[in-house]
Design a protein around this nucleic acid. Sequence first.
RNA 1: GGCGCCUUCGUCUAGGGGUCAGGACGUGUGGUUCUCAGCCAUAAAACACGGGUUCGAAUCCCGUAGGCGCUGCCA
Length: 466
Amino acid sequence: MSQKIVTRFAPSPTGYLHIGGARTALFNWLFARGHGGTFLLRIEDTDRARSTPEATAAILKGLEWLGLDYDGEVVSQFERVPRHAEVAREMLARGAAYKCFSTQEEIEAFREKAKAEGSSQLFRSPWRDADPSTYPDAPYVIRLKAPREGATVVHDKVQGDVTVRNDQLDDMVCLRSDGTPTYMLAVVVDDHDMGVTHVIRGDDHLVNAARQMQIYLAMGWDVPVYAHIPLIHGPDGKKLSKRHGAVGLEQYQAMGYPAAGMRNYLARLGWSHGDDEFFTDEQAKSWFELEGIGRSPARLDFKKLENICGRHMAVADDDALMPQVAGYLEAAELPALTEMQAKGLRAAMPYIKSSAKTFPQLIEKAHFALVQRPIDVDEKAAKQLDPVSRGILKELTPRLQNASWTRDDLEAIVKQVAEEKDLGLGKLASPLRAALAGRSVTPGVFDMMYVLGREETLARVNDQVA
RNA sequence: GGCGCCUUCGUCUAGGGGUCAGGACGUGUGGUUCUCAGCCAUAAAACACGGGUUCGAAUCCCGUAGGCGCUGCCA
């Protein structure tokens, strides 16, 4: 079994890219990339009423942001309809499927009756063994002639062997009366044709896998390796829904989480490699195995997401962060940085990135480097600029004039002045901070001075003491 | 209703017959510091419940409860 691994992500374009779907995509990507395999993308757009090109675009955009690149062209399931129909006809020819003329009304009536009587709601088509000569001239669907005896067992890499009795499975519709394929048929045909070796998907498909296996068997195709991963739940343990807030991946970009942190966090949700919590993409790829996937549903924890993101932010490359900030601002529908602000942010980056967890926090910390003189001084900062403090700042100015303007030198000078005045460093740092940033909470004052440069620093101080 | 899956600190998880049940996030406390953040140290915190099997069960078996899923001419 040393054949090349092929995985796929197959979302249906009926909205945004769900965060759970994003994790499914990530697992498929990690598994393929870590094993020298191929990662394919297929859009399951056979439901014409609910599929929209906008939704497809949103999925593509989401994957791009998350950094999950796929191989080859995107496969549109809808475009493969003729092939699905062809397979349905072949199953018919093989006697593995049959034409069913029962109308939806008839089936509906059957179900209601069964429900009322408390009997099995599985529909048993009367056409399963009907003589073709009795076929009416009416629309029909093609149903799989599923085995009624025995059981189907799914050898799942996550859930173990899952046995489903065949009498619990009905003869599912493969081809609708309008000639279009159902999901059950389409996935199997597409996965087979695309050479998919490992199907990693949400465990809401676990029972479906048993049905799908019957199609593989009917066609004499190799069954792929299955790995059904648990769904993601909201913080309250309920199935994740819109009511929990952020379900769409693009919302996470808009909230300012860096993609690297997102990948790390999502990978850790439901998968583990010993006690490793913080890791690079390369490590994740080399560590990722199906055996490491857990069996129980996980809840989203924004605190941990933030923590992981903060650690990735701290080690990120300064230049690489810049386009990410721009991407965040765009996603959040915020105005882009001006050229001058971008320069300021880039200069401040080494001093602020280690303490920011998200891009909004990063921008907040960069505030001093983003504003221009004359800067606004908020209420708390203004309090620090009382007459006495201004006097001290004034005495500091000439010393700064002659400083060599290295971080160490600046610190030495300010500390020396504080000592001479017999003041704690805080007494001097606070008004200085207020003068430089107009705020009471900022990065370190020496860092700010260094980033701002001699001219700007002196100008800002003078603005307050003059 | 029927069938299937799941259940270890608040959360993510490690561990899979003998462990002081480990780590991480969060929380509390202390420290470092020019503010905030960060960082360091430290503490509290879990095997859903009930039966078995066994010298011994979080670990194996059965049951119960709860959660989730499937049961569509949705995907």
